[in-house]
Simulated assay, not measured.
Amino acid sequence: MNLWRSARDQGQTLSREQQSELDSLVEVELKATTARTAILLQQKHRSCKEIKTG
């Protein structure tokens, strides 16, 4: 990200290889964040059900 910010601030772009690597890292992070969110929502849903039936 620092390399991307530096290039952006200088009005430049990353090389194709660098941009591809960054895109892949962003994709992996997005998938991981989505998975964590799904787990949190499932936990919240379970907690709500337990409180209602408790």
Rank of each mutant, 00 (worst) to 15 (best):
V28P: 00
S20K: 09
K52L: 13
K52M: 11
K31F: 07
L25R: 12
Q19F: 01
Q43I: 11
E21P: 01
L22T: 04
A32V: 06
T34A: 15
E27Q: 14
E29H: 12
S47P: 00
L14N: 02
L25H: 06
L41R: 15
W4K: 07
L40P: 02
G11S: 05
T53V: 09
S47K: 10
S20N: 04
S15M: 10
Q43R: 13
D23A: 12
S6A: 04
K49D: 06
R16K: 08
R46K: 12
L41Q: 13
Q10R: 13
G11A: 14
W4P: 00
A32S: 10
S47Q: 07
L14K: 03
R16M: 04
S24Q: 06
V26I: 07
E50K: 15
G54F: 07
H45W: 05
E29K: 14
T13Y: 00
V26T: 06
T33F: 08
T53S: 08
M1N: 09
E27R: 04
N2L: 15
R5W: 06
I51H: 06
M1S: 12
T33P: 01
I39C: 06
E21M: 10
L14A: 02
A32D: 11
I51M: 08
E50M: 15
E29R: 15
T37P: 00
K31S: 12
V26F: 03
K31Q: 15
I39W: 05
T33V: 11
K31P: 02
N2F: 09
S24N: 12
A38F: 03
A32E: 15
L22A: 04
R36F: 03
L40F: 05
G11W: 02
Q43F: 01
L30P: 01
E29T: 08
K52F: 00
E17G: 01
Q19K: 00
R36G: 09
Q19H: 02
E17T: 03
V28D: 11
N2W: 14
Q42R: 09
A7H: 02
Q12F: 01
Q12V: 03
K31I: 10
S47M: 11
D23P: 02
L41M: 14
S24E: 07
H45R: 10
Q42I: 10
E21T: 07
T34Y: 08
I51T: 02
S15C: 08
E29C: 11
T13R: 11
S15W: 04
M1Q: 09
Q42P: 00
V26G: 00
T34H: 12
W4Q: 11
A7C: 07
E29P: 01
A7I: 04
K49M: 11
Q12K: 14
Q42M: 06
I51P: 00
